[in-house]
Design a protein around this nucleic acid. Structure first.
Lengths: 136, 136
DNA sequence: GTAAATTTGCAACATGGTTGCAAAAAATCA
DNA sequence: TGATTTTTTGCAACCATGTTGCAAATTTAC
């Protein structure tokens, strides 16, 4: 609870029930959540609009980040602590069995060679496969 | 034109005006197109629904592929010829200036090491930066 | 050229996300 | 603490992308 207040305070966001609940939900989840999943977890008594607005604020301040899946579906997850991760290389894992999305932010990878003239700033890698839980 | 007929025939898809126009549009484009962009290029006289259904058929048969951008927006592009590309490693480039999306399918890259228990099947890399045309 | 199979257009719907605005709740400050 | 300012909320309405059901039109196969 303390950490969540700190997150909000550190980003100069007022401490509202909806925001607190969203951050709690994302922290408890072991995988990235869609907006409907978030709303389900925090109870239905918050308006869709409010949730989206909260997410947008979080995204802008990089408190959370979103992952776009193949069909365009978005999942949201807490951003890794700024010091721990390389901000230009993001790795996410999508499990074909359970559809879970896991952040593998601490894993660097070799950057590919690009054709002449292309200038890269950052790299988002989405790995598909089977996760720990589903492999059996 | 011959190639487009061959593409359709090779995938046992009937030769309809809408499908032909979509494939022509995608072949002419130097970057991946959104559905609205496609519809704009092929003229407005095709129904939205029809375009989406054509795209779905193409996707299922891997005639085209889609790329999900950060916000969840989808772009569509012709798939590289099956022989030329490594089907488990896809690289796309998103230009922060012009918002163009370019397929860099021929560029392999080092696959990252994953945490214990994760089993990868394929890798989709989205590189952000500035493209050839926008770099000045 | 005709019959069967496929595709089209339309209308209606679903989902994810945004906007405007008045009411409510936080933060600020005395 | 209470009054004031600022921010956030809920609601209704809206937008965009994509899908479904069904009858009419087009392709294909014979």
């Amino acid at each position: 609870m303390k950490e969540i207040y700190a997150l909000l305070e550190g980003n100069r966001l007022s401490r509202t029930p909806c925001r607190i609940e969203i951050l709690k939900a994302l922290r408890q989840a072991d995988s990235a959540l869609s907006e409907p999943e978030i709303r389900e977890k925090i109870g239905e008594h918050f308006d869709r609009t409010t949730v989206y607005r909260s997410l947008r604020s979080f995204l802008k301040l990089d408190v959370i980040h979103s992952i776009a899946l193949d069909g365009g579906e978005l999942r949201y997850a807490l951003s890794p602590e700024k010091e721990l991760a390389d901000s230009s290389h993001h790795v996410h894992f999508f499990c074909n069995d359970c559809s879970g999305v896991f952040c593998i932010s601490h894993q660097a990878f070799e950057t590919p060679v690009l054709p002449d003239g292309f200038e890269a700033t950052n790299f988002d890698l989405l790995v598909h496969g089977r996760c720990k839980n589903c492999k059996g």
